[in-house]
């Protein structure tokens, strides 16, 4: 029996594909955001609000990831943005290859911002680079405030954390400070936004952040 040292990342194939589409995005001057969350935290609602606020200010394209159905892409189109749905039929995350395929016939030069809504899952998507500039983890006040302790990977691997459904804070036992401390423990560099898609609170600050994103020249 012979031992062969390899030192190869299991994610290397995805990483190579992600690097390739990142170059395409850069050439097109497109800023790319990858949104993660548990199911039901409000990713699609946040995108609907974003569509309404940024209409006419930024040219946005949305990629929706779900196990089944075209429902989320339909919601985004109803909110006025072009959207492409990826149905993974059971696979628990999007990978760079699926993004590349979904965008094959899309003219990237026609857009400023690509928003990718990942599959609702806090574990699997974290290892898969989609060629994004910014990764966002969306949490909500109807979840436990200890989520960052339980799923540190998602917080560790993100740049931004949006705490959604803050209009429900008077009715739920969610402790914002405990949540923020737990998230900072997983990642001291996280940028936080607190939003409600029902009242619109905090959406402007989130949208200004998106507007300020610029793809650095290739």
């Amino acid at each position: 029996m012979t031992e062969i040292p390899l030192q190869k990342s299991v994610f290397q194939r995805n990483q190579a594909q992600a690097d390739r589409i990142r170059r395409r995005f850069a050439q097109a001057g497109l800023a790319v955001v990858n949104l993660l969350s548990s199911p039901g935290a409000g990713k699609t609602s946040l995108l609907e609000q974003t569509a309404a606020r940024l209409a006419g200010r930024r040219r946005i394209f949305v990629v929706e990831g779900d196990l089944e159905t075209e429902r989320d892409a339909d919601r985004i189109r109803a909110a006025g943005l072009p959207a492409r749905q990826i149905q993974t039929h059971g696979a628990c995350h999007l990978d760079a290859e699926s993004i590349e395929q979904a965008l094959t016939d899309v003219d990237l030069n026609a857009y400023d911002l690509l928003l990718i809504e990942n599959i609702g899952n806090l574990i699997c998507p974290t290892g898969f680079d989609l060629g994004e500039d910014v990764r966002v983890v969306v949490a909500s006040t109807t979840e436990g405030d200890d989520k960052p302790h339980k799923y540190p990977e998602a917080y560790h691997a993100s740049d931004v954390c949006v705490l959604n459904k803050i209009d429900l804070l008077p009715y739920v036992p969610f402790r914002v400070e405990a949540f923020l401390a737990a998230a900072r423990r997983a990642n001291p560099g996280l940028v936080f936004f607190q939003t409600s898609c029902t009242t619109g609170e905090g959406i402007d600050a989130w949208c200004e952040y998106l507007c300020a994103l610029h793809r650095s020249p290739a």
């Binding site: 390899l6 030192q7 290892g127 423990r185």
Partner: peptide, 13 residues
């Protein structure tokens, strides 16, 4: 602060 790597590598076979 949590400390850890997020990679998965095949070290050797």
């Amino acid at each position: 602060v949590l400390r850890g790597e997020d990679g998965l590598d095949v070290v050797s076979i």
